[in-house]
Design a protein around this nucleic acid. Structure first.
Lengths: 211, 211
DNA sequence: CACAATACAATTTTTGTATTTTGTTACTTG
DNA sequence: CAAGTAACAAAATACAAAAATTGTATTGTG
């Protein structure tokens, strides 16, 4: 886990990120990245097997940041309902902020979400795991009723996907809509359901690749 | 509301649909449609102002079919919870079936969903209205607790978007996943929340363009 | 005069080609 | 041998010319 700024992989990623922010993902190529670092482009291929791997790594980094953001709420000491609500709201705002502050990186992320279902499946799995932890804690604390934790975590993820999926967030933003009120309402509904308890999967709950 | 097969507009739409099914939306042009009807292409322009209008009308027809499908559950005489569950499940299965049986028309629909937020907003509005009717009935019957109907209907729509939005349904299908179990679980959660009641909007609930 | 065909201008798509970019390999250098 | 360069083949991209498609205006016909 060494994340020195001198790790060549990280330096490449940071340079790439900088170029993408300035000129966009479409106009950034491997030669440019190498040039910005004072190297020949083939030096890059010592550390990444392809251009796609560089771009994927940037998207993966974004996902990791979000997972870290979410993780804070899993570890926090507060009622599960509060943590769940705060987690989802934070992720939503993070996506919105990224769209506004860093549109080129958002566009890259959005593209990769569309063409790399496997990366998304991993991300969804990780996030669902975090949700599961909060739900389990909520049950342990007596806040929530009984439930099939895996099914419930997947259901919570699905119910909030529309507030976190970059394509939906972007569509809402372009239409000039604020999704936060809707998010709060869905949260009210879901928390009501969780408190009522007896949540079971309709069958074995599969993994879902969306998000 | 005359829908004779002899209405020229309908005949054009049916011909277009047939060609799209056979050769795909990309390879179907106005000249082809006219040719298939034994007309010159300019005759088509007596009835449609542009090619886009033809394609949009096909998507709108699909939306109307779904709205009709949903409407049956609004009018049915059964507990609101049952009707709500059946409505959402039916819409989900309808999208899945379309994807499997009519992939070219599904692709066209998916494309239009992406590039015509206004059409989608209308569709979402109509569907949300239907959901609202069921919710109102549920409250009247004493099945559900009190709620801000507009906010609740929007929240239900948002929570199930992932099971009905063509992009999500397609992504799940491509990954070989069945979404029905997840849908049932979300439904359990949402119904729990609706029964518990006291659902309010976080603020004034805006219209949402997704779906 | 209603309706359809033809002719035509404006776009858009396709095709073939030149250029750039990617990714590999063989070769330097400290 | 770790890190990099230079040279090169393969693939992707950009571009310009040709072809088609779209949409409109004009003309023809029952």
């Amino acid at each position: 886990m060494e994340s020195h700024a001198s790790d060549p992989r990280d330096r490449i990623l940071e340079t790439a990120r900088d170029l993408i922010r300035r000129f966009g993902g479409a106009k950034t190529n491997v030669v440019d990245i190498a040039q910005a670092m004072g190297l020949s482009h083939s030096a890059i291929y010592r550390h990444f097997r392809s251009k796609a791997e560089i771009f994927d790594a940037l998207a993966a980094a974004t996902m990791a940041e979000e997972a870290a953001l979410a993780d804070a709420f899993v570890k926090a000491d507060a009622p599960a309902a509060e943590r769940l609500a705060a987690l989802v709201l934070t992720l939503h705002r993070s996506k919105r902020a990224k769209l506004a502050d860093d549109p080129e990186m958002h566009a890259l992320y959005r593209r990769i979400v569309e063409e790399r279902p496997d990366l998304i499946a991993d991300y969804a799995r990780r996030m669902t795991g975090l949700l599961r932890l909060i739900l389990a804690d909520g049950v342990a604390r007596g806040e929530f009723g009984t439930m099939d934790l895996d099914a419930a975590a997947g259901a919570v993820r699905d119910a909030f996907t529309v507030f976190i999926h970059p394509a939906h967030v972007e569509a809402a933003a372009k239409a000039g809509l604020d999704q936060e009120a809707g998010l709060q309402t869905v949260m009210g509904l879901v928390l009501g359901g969780l408190v009522a308890g007896s949540i079971q999967g309709g069958a074995v709950q599969e993994e879902r690749p969306d998000e």
